[in-house]
Design a protein around this nucleic acid. Structure first.
Lengths: 172, 172
DNA sequence: TATCATCCCATGATATCCCAAATGATCCCG
DNA sequence: CGGGATCATTTGGGATATCATGGGATGATA
């Protein structure tokens, strides 16, 4: 119950404010923080975010890279320079900086997508498209879902072919 | 008595609520949790669910993948974004999100199908059809169930056939 | 003074809680 | 072995609380 879960689509009002889902607020509240920390996704056209725990995880990963390496500077530019600490107002809303919304093609609606230790913020239509590809791809990654109790020589029970029904991407 | 067992078909009322079978509630209650955690099946047109133990297994698997890898994002989209933590009301009911019922073709009735460590939620007619194929298939998979007590060189003692008495699927 | 951001309150929609009835299963007694 | 009573569980409806969202007021900044 202490992780980001589910998909919630909210509106951005005329002032640029958007409600963070109450379920997500509860997660960061458990981390003694009434806000979220956001940065551009490294791999997808969306915003990523989380609480202080995620930020600490990022610091730890960056600290393992050489202090003056180009890789570290590049990653720090994405995860630190372009990040923002967005505090909730009294009603649980934030306003997303233009720097972040522009990359994600966000206009007046956003979908909050819970991914466990972090979440993503998408333009709703863009996420629908992404989810379709993710579902197809997930079938290929099905091999990662191995039984924790399997013995080395035991059969998996799966022939590797995961039949996938058509995802209903188009919905209101 | 600590695993999901049996088939129970319940109605969804006008508000979208459905009773979770009392036997299933007892299982998650034993895990100190008065609710269930549901997500789309990776292989079948149905919903899957379980208690915190099942969710912890999923978390463990995801945590082993690199935080910003595409694999992890894709799998988290299946198992976290599309999942829901559904708490029982005072009468042991939950309300299933549209995102989950749509994929399973669920309208106003559901069948809870116990599978041991987890369970599935089907549209009743769809389950009847699935069960027919599953029973035929199960006979051929009997050989996958190796004795936990077998010694390396011992014969299996199984001819692959399992006699099955009729389950009471359709009732009331 | 004008513009922007933040704070505060009001409203509508949705989900949750609480109570009551009906159905079905179990147990006990004749 | 049959019948009736008791209990657990499911199902229905009304009341309440929570949440998202819009608009106005306040304060800071340039």
């Amino acid at each position: 119950m202490l992780s980001f879960r589910g998909i919630f689509t909210n509106k951005i009002d005329a002032k640029g404010r958007v409600s963070v889902p109450a379920k997500f607020r509860a997660v960061t509240a458990a981390q003694q923080f009434s806000g979220i920390i956001c940065f551009p996704s490294l791999s997808d056209p969306c915003i990523e975010g989380g609480g202080p725990d995620l930020d600490a995880e990022i610091d730890l990963m960056l600290s393992r890279l050489d202090p003056f390496s180009r890789e570290r500077n590049v990653l720090a530019n994405m995860l630190k320079a372009q990040s923002a600490e967005l505090m909730f107002d009294a009603d649980g809303r934030i306003s997303l900086p233009d720097m972040l919304t522009a990359k994600a093609g966000i206009v007046d609606q956003v979908s909050f997508v819970g991914l466990g230790n972090k979440f993503q913020i998408w333009e709703p239509a863009a996420y629908e498209a992404y989810l379709a590809t993710a579902m197809a791809e997930a079938a290929g990654h099905g091999g990662l879902l191995r039984s924790p109790y399997a013995t080395p020589g035991s059969p998996s029970g799966s022939d590797g072919r995961a039949s996938q029904n058509t995802p209903d991407t188009g919905r209101s």
